[in-house]
Design a protein around this nucleic acid. Structure first.
Lengths: 166, 166
DNA sequence: TATTGTTATACTCTATAACTATA
DNA sequence: TATAGTTATAGAGTATAACAATA
């Protein structure tokens, strides 16, 4: 009802607008599962990269940043937020005292175990229009495109200048 | 150099993180072309939906919002920004004086004509890892997924609550 | 001197809500 | 009363820059 249902507005068949819409959809689906637990989709993504089931417990923050495709500053803030909620803990590395090793707490592991299946189901449901083999193909291609363009995955990707004419 | 090149960090094979990375990449590629002209990727997207070549000149702002998958408020701001730069103009509709019809100015059309081929090339280049038929398939599937999940494409998709335990 | 992480800050994108003006 | 658009405001995400501690 919110948006014009009229004649199903066309989507431009170009990567950038398509990627934006796809991201919106995926984020909305994840948020629906994760928000009731007080998490943002990104915070949940951090937990996914750090948990003991599909993640890498005791990863350092710089590596975590690389996994997420964000930079160290934001990782720090995200980790602090999760830590403040008792979902995650930082430990100083024994071999290099600059490094913080990050892992979920018991509480964090438990919450992740509860949310992960729902989040995954919600995300996969988005691909229901695709046949099973198409779905695999689609994810494969997505991975390949991302791997191939890793270098672009986060430089100054949204800077502005305001007033292009002066 | 910015990000750990170490062993090419794995990407989780789930829609949400993949969509985020893909969006980052696409946005970076678009920004590289569009920023030198003082535009953000989203402002450029507005121009793409409004220009006379591949867009719909004299579209109203609500329909434009639906095309972009954003809401009226932001459309208003975006349009104002482009208008302030002389790239776009608003006209009151003759048949309904509440409605503003949006179209590019001569200057806007000219700038869009300059940027569009470069932006398109930049975006398509991201898909170079894919074979030609794969690329078409990929875009098709992306469109289908988006069409199928239109309803999700922008409700309260990022709200928060802070402190899930209380 | 280089690197890990932190803090401060700013800007884009997106959302909610309250408003004006038309219908 | 409902709709198109505007304005104000806020929060999520991401960026730069300067800094502290450690190597």
């Amino acid at each position: 009802m919110t948006i014009a249902e009229e004649a199903a507005p066309p989507v431009h068949r170009f990567p950038n607008p398509l990627s934006r819409r796809f991201f919106q959809i995926c984020t909305a689906a994840t948020a629906a599962v994760v928000e009731p637990a007080g998490l943002t989709p990104l915070e949940f993504a951090v937990m996914a990269y750090v948990n003991s089931k599909i993640g890498e417990p005791d990863i350092d923050q710089t590596s975590l940043a690389a996994r997420l495709g964000i930079d160290r500053n934001n990782t720090s803030l995200l980790v602090s937020s999760l830590e403040a909620n008792g979902l995650l803990e930082r430990r100083v590395s024994g071999t290099d005292r600059r490094v913080r090793l990050v892992r979920l707490t018991g509480k964090g592991e438990k919450l992740f175990a509860q949310l992960e299946p729902k989040a995954l189901a919600g995300q996969n449901q988005l691909l229901d229009v695709l046949a099973d083999d198409e779905r695999e193909q689609f994810l494969d291609m997505l991975v390949r495109v991302i791997e191939a363009n890793r270098a672009l995955a986060r430089p100054g990707a949204g800077r502005r200048k305001r007033n292009g004419s002066s």
